[in-house]
Design a protein around this nucleic acid. Structure first.
Lengths: 136, 136
DNA sequence: TCGCGAAAGCTATGCCGAATAGCAATCGGC
DNA sequence: GCCGATTGCTATTCGGCATAGCTTTCGCGA
């Protein structure tokens, strides 16, 4: 079957991201996290006391869409919210949050390793800079 | 703000795909198509008489999810379905479908050109093979 | 200092892609 | 000729993402 799509980088980009995303989502589900959860936990760990909207800006997640994510993480006992002033609140990991993040981190690093290994050696080093040039 | 995410190719892959996808979707909307519509039209043009399930297999779209896409394209007068036998039907572009696809093709090619141009020259040639290695 | 625009957090809602489960009709190889 | 595989479909759900609008609070400039 003829397939004119395969010559479009944009199409391959979408397909590759979907494939990788599905794979990672499945692996992360065994520690009870979604991808957005994991990325958010990482940023909170690296920046204790950060606010929800600062996180949203960095991750390009709208404030409105942060709400259910944070609620889920708080309900799961992984993060705490402490008022900074009347309108902002600082986020931090709980002990359970740190433990869960450690597990998630191992899953993710393993995943990333395998992802890289699938790429022929001569192309490997170019992937990250090329991708970053697209969205940054 | 510290950001441990930026060193993960998987994360950049997701972000780059999202950014590109949003951009293309917006451009395609001016010709009244979604990305899935456009990719499907291209495959139908290259393979007249192809069946819905064969298309789905190639595009990794489940049979169930093909239904609304095909219905939309048929309602818009872009494709026709002709029974092959009692259970299969062959798809083909209408005249309007060919015209619309031509417009879409120009949009897509322009988009792909700009996408490539954003990547530093020394990385360009490596992107497509690297991406293909991930999902194929 | 006080007034007002900006920012923070939130609700409600909808769209799109994708997945699952299940069904009826048909095809095709043994 | 029979039975498993295939096709097309309905119905439903979920996750990611977007928009519109609300209330409260902050903080800067007149």
């Amino acid at each position: 079957m003829k397939d004119p799509l395969t010559s479009f980088p944009g199409y391959s980009l979408r397909r590759a991201a979907n494939a990788a995303s599905a794979e990672l989502a499945q692996r992360l589900s065994v520690v009870g996290l979604r991808q957005s959860d994991a990325s958010l936990l990482m940023l909170v760990e690296a920046n204790p006391g950060v606010t929800a909207s600062a996180l949203g800006r960095r991750l390009d997640i709208q404030r409105a869409n942060m709400v259910p994510i944070l609620k889920r993480l708080e309900d799961a006992g992984l993060i705490t919210r402490a008022p900074i002033d009347g309108k902002s609140q600082g986020l931090a990991l709980t002990e359970a949050g740190r433990r869960t993040l450690t597990e998630a981190f191992q899953v993710i690093e393993q995943f990333e390793r395998e992802l890289i290994e699938r790429i022929p050696a001569e192309h490997r080093a170019h992937l990250l800079p090329a991708l970053d040039a697209i969205w940054r």
